[in-house]
Design a protein around this nucleic acid. Structure first.
Lengths: 194, 194
DNA sequence: CCTACCGATCGGTAGG
DNA sequence: CCTACCGATCGGTAGG
């Protein structure tokens, strides 16, 4: 019997680690801290995970997969570039909102991965960003967006705004993630339109 | 005789530390790493600085002072809120551009300060953000900005975009900081205007 | 700025 | 999941 809503012990370890890494940063988090949060001894962690870095890797690559899937879905649909961009933004926000803790780790701690994992991770991220850049370019070519906009600047501003969100968004606030995504998309996409 | 264009040894230590903290993060940077960059023994660092954290504190608080001074200057001038906001943005970017390394440390490593320094730092930062929020509010009240905009969201988006800049801006690129600031201000302020 | 060194803590293993 | 432990590394001090 596999767990359904419940988490395996390994998943519990990873989840608690994500909270710890988010709070203190990866390098400042010790395996003894993590063990204490779980109420076990540090050495016992290693029956569930291979290493501290393995936890970071699984957090980062799982998030990367979610982001990719969300954008796949957006690209499958037809419509003007501005609409695609809006849906891409809303999707990105929703993926983050599903796990703000992992998102914060993904964003701020990925650099602590060793090679070749870091390299692979950065390639995934560049690819994802380029797909957004392509949508912006499509919008410029179709005349939806001003041709005066600086694509690199636009896409960097976009991701800055999106990626900082786990740092200030309060999941208990009265604004729900999908509305937040819509509002963010309004602010960011409208600035590009003719 | 005091150094003029030259740096004191202490300033050299702090500068090299900033580079190291930016590259590897504060927690993952050892005093032995830093000593090596300077070509001395780790123990010798302590004739120039009191502790590892003192370096972080001086980086963070010096940047905070620069940001505050820039905003003081902006508030001293008259003009519509949109113009103030633009100048605030350009000023912020210019302060960062003057020292991208220290800016990156300021942004990403401040949380490693201990109390009461961290608390004091966060108060300065809240205060700075609130002054931008006031400018936005002024623009809404005067009718320059849409009254539908969410002040908190707007100011968070603004700072996200600004603060991520040290991570992607290439100082050797053909776009100079003041132009970058102008373009960023265009994108961000125009989205708020009626 | 150096040599010599400290106690504390780190990630991880052996063996149950 | 535990006890017992490892070698490596940490920030920092004493004394010159």
């Amino acid at each position: 019997m596999e767990p359904v809503a419940n988490l395996t012990r390994k998943e519990q370890v990873i989840r608690k680690a994500a909270e710890l890494f988010r709070e203190k940063g990866y390098a400042a988090s010790s395996m003894r801290d993590l063990a204490q949060k779980l109420g076990i001894e540090a050495a016992s962690l290693y029956s569930h995970i291979k290493s501290k870095e393995e936890i970071l890797q699984s957090l980062c690559f799982d998030m990367a997969t979610e982001f990719r899937k969300s954008l796949d879905e957006v690209e499958r649909q037809k419509g003007p570039a501005s609409e695609k961009l809006r849906r891409g933004i809303v999707g990105h926000i929703q993926v983050m909102a599903k796990d703000l803790t992992a998102s914060a780790v993904f964003m701020n701690e990925h650099r602590h991965m060793s090679q070749p994992f870091l390299r692979e991770f950065l390639l995934l991220r560049i690819n994802y960003i380029n797909r957004f850049k392509d949508i912006i370019e499509e919008g410029i070519n179709s005349g939806e967006f001003k041709d005066s906009i600086d694509k690199k600047l636009a896409v960097m501003t976009l991701f800055s705004s999106l990626n900082w969100m786990p740092q200030w968004y309060d999941p208990h606030s009265n604004i729900v993630p999908i509305d937040l995504g819509q509002k963010l998309a309004d602010m960011l996409v409208n600035g590009m339109k003719r």
